[in-house]
């Protein structure tokens, strides 16, 4: 993360260029989605409906939850037609 010790470290116009993905939103979660791919049909609804772009698809085509950015909204668990995802309480 960039730091700004003095005004001289700031750009000359209010131009932001650090991707928000450098920030973790994991701490927002009260419940976490846990994916069991046993019944997964690779329909990718979970990937499609994630408002946080926190589900990606790996080289083998399996959806992967990136917990660094998952806020635990539960949409993926609700929308999964095969009930592969369950929400578990964060401890």
């Amino acid at each position: 993360m960039k730091t700004y010790k003095t005004y001289a470290d700031l750009p000359g116009a209010p131009i932001a260029d650090v991707p928000s993905q450098e920030e973790s939103t994991a701490g927002w979660r009260t419940t976490r989605p846990v994916l069991d791919p046993k019944n997964c049909t690779k329909c990718y609804l979970c990937w499609k409906y994630c408002p946080d772009t926190a589900i990606s698809v790996n080289d083998e085509g399996w959806p992967v939850i990136r917990y660094e950015h998952c806020k635990g909204c539960g949409i993926c668990a609700t929308e999964c037609p095969k009930e592969c995802i369950v929400m578990e309480k964060e401890v």
Binding site: S20, T25, T53, E68, C73, G74, I75
Partner: peptide
């Protein structure tokens, strides 16, 4: 859209 944005959960 990058992850790590601060929209509410389920936005």
């Amino acid at each position: 859209v990058y992850s790590g944005h601060v929209a509410c959960p389920g936005c």
